[in-house]
Computed example of a mutant assay.
Amino acid sequence: MSVSELFHLFVASHIVTGATGLLAFWVPVFAKKGGTAHRTVGKVFTVTMLLTGTAAIGISLCTLADPVSTHPHLTEHADFRDPALVRAIFGWMMLALATLTLNLAWYGWQCIRNRRDHTANRESVNLGLQAATFITATNCAVQGLLIGQPLMLGVSLIGWATVGTNLWFLYKRQPAANDWLREHIKALVGAGISVYTAFFAFGAVRTFPTLALHPVLWAIPLTVGLAIILYQWRKLARPRAALPAGQRA
């Protein structure tokens, strides 16, 4: 099987699992927390994010191996005629986003699975994904500097921030009662942001290549996702704020 054929196999898998996950994303966001719909569809979302991230890694590696045959439609566009640019954007940056998605989906899942045993969150896969995300984010920044693409630096900052906040929680000695839930929300909504961003930005390449790097297209999922996270965190804080100081976690 050629690199191009393998690439298209990964793309097909990415589209199927990604589209399923992006539709499933909204059910746990709006459904009653802890209810049947939230738990059931939330698992579907998490699994599809893990599969989507894995397929995206395959896409990025194929692009790195052969940027021209995997993206022949871009060779006719003035903005992407240089194979080095295609390799950087659709190879290195996608690899960073894919690793970030895997990190957030797995971490968010572990937060709820280990809510009664915080130290269990420090298992090898969880810690390994923090390291992998830091490495791919750092590489993304380096590659962005080499081609003069500030968007890649922005992706790197998100990756570093994710690793930093994840490790802060993972090694926190005495987490507050709702810390695991705050991290669960942050991570899984973050995974949704990551994949929506990829679908909007990289999906636009097929029809409007210049939109792939337009900051507005990248800002929309991030803004909506952050609003969801902050809203859910605020809801969590309300009952605690209503308690007398001595009864708060």
Rank of each mutant, 00 (worst) to 15 (best):
F10K: 01
R39I: 11
G91A: 04
V11K: 01
L127I: 05
N178T: 13
T119I: 13
A249I: 07
R173G: 12
F199T: 01
P67G: 03
L74M: 10
I89M: 03
A212Q: 11
I228L: 13
I15E: 01
V216L: 15
F90V: 10
I147S: 05
Y231D: 13
A212H: 11
H118S: 07
A141N: 04
P215K: 01
A55R: 07
G91T: 01
T162D: 05
F25S: 11
M1E: 02
R122C: 01
V27R: 12
L102R: 13
T40D: 05
M93D: 10
E123M: 07
Y171K: 06
M93I: 10
R81S: 14
G35R: 00
Y196G: 09
Y107F: 09
G18Q: 00
A56Q: 08
T20V: 15
W109E: 15
T17M: 10
A65S: 08
V47H: 01
C62Y: 07
T99H: 07
L222R: 05
K32C: 02
A105K: 02
H77Q: 09
G154D: 14
K235I: 10
N114R: 04
A132L: 10
D117G: 05
Q110M: 13
M49Y: 08
V163K: 03
V224M: 10
L9F: 14
V47T: 12
V11P: 02
A24I: 09
L23C: 13
L181P: 00
D82S: 13
G159N: 08
F134P: 13
W218A: 15
Y196K: 06
R206N: 14
A227C: 12
T20D: 11
S156V: 00
A176Y: 02
L243D: 07
L61V: 15
T210L: 07
A98Q: 04
C62P: 02
P28L: 00
F199K: 03
A201D: 15
S156A: 12
L181C: 02
W92C: 06
D179M: 12
L61C: 12
N178D: 14
T70Y: 02
S4Q: 08
I193S: 09
A219C: 12
T63A: 10
P83K: 02
F208G: 04
A131V: 14
L127C: 03
P215A: 02
H8K: 00
T165H: 11
G18Y: 00
L217G: 13
F169A: 07
A219R: 11
G225A: 03
L213G: 15
K43T: 08
I229W: 09
Q247Y: 14
C111L: 12
H184Q: 09
L127F: 01
T48F: 00
M152Y: 02
G53L: 07
F200E: 15
I193A: 01
A227I: 13
T119P: 03
V3H: 00
L104I: 06
I193Q: 06
W92G: 04
W168L: 14
L51C: 04
Y231I: 12
Q149K: 04
V29F: 06
L9C: 13
S13L: 14
A141W: 14
S69L: 03
V142P: 12
P175V: 01
T52D: 10
S156W: 05
A96E: 11
A56C: 02
F45L: 02
L51A: 05
N126Q: 05
K32I: 07
V47M: 01
A132S: 06
V16D: 00
L236G: 04
I228R: 07
T133Y: 08
P67Q: 01
